[in-house]
Amino acid sequence: MNVFRLAGDMTHLLSIMVLLLKIHSMKSCAGISLKTQELYVLVFATRYLDIFTTYFSFYNTVMKIVFLVTSFSIVWYMRHHKVVRQTYDRDQDTFRHHLLVIPCFLLALLINHRFTVREVLWTFSLYLEAVAILPQLVLLQRSRNIDNLTGNYVFFLGAYRGLYLFNWIYRYMAEKSQLRWIPWISGLVQTALYADFFYYYIKSWKKREKLQLPA
């Protein structure tokens, strides 16, 4: 495993830890999109099906379990925890996320590496992950007050896929890995969706001002 891949995984893990910290310590999910979190549950559930069938490494298995358990528990907190769920911005989080699922699935049926159940679901998870942040970005744009933990959560989440791009370049150049257009293009789209957010995040960080996205 190269340094970009490890850094990417750690940033991903960090983003989830930041979100859980917010939920546990502030007992709040204000500014967090339940729609995005539900999409992540679907992403991980379809991608990590192979946890029961193929063994890669101890690291791989543990990380998959962590991502599955944490994504399910975040959704549980937002839906069912008696304090946390009251902080959910239901009226602002109106993105129709179901509309993202069907096109991603159809695309996975059409464009995949191999037409098997596992491969189509894996591909579907890549396409869906690429756009899963959209409800969250829309919610951030509507929020007047973005607290630090929420801003950092989205920043780390975006940084994770950005680092994966470097990982893929490294693997292609140094490890002579094959051309893998499906994850590369999905990852590029995913990272590009954060461009605007990154711009305002870094700007506010430099000026030490509170993060606010223009409407």
């Binding site: 193929t54 890669f56 490494s57 791989n60 991502f67 491969e119 994966y164 990982n167 094959q178 994850p183």
Partner: peptide
């Protein structure tokens, strides 16, 4: 083997 390389990422 090819599948293994594809799927070892998270």
């Amino acid at each position: 083997e090819e599948d293994k390389e594809e799927h070892d990422e998270l």
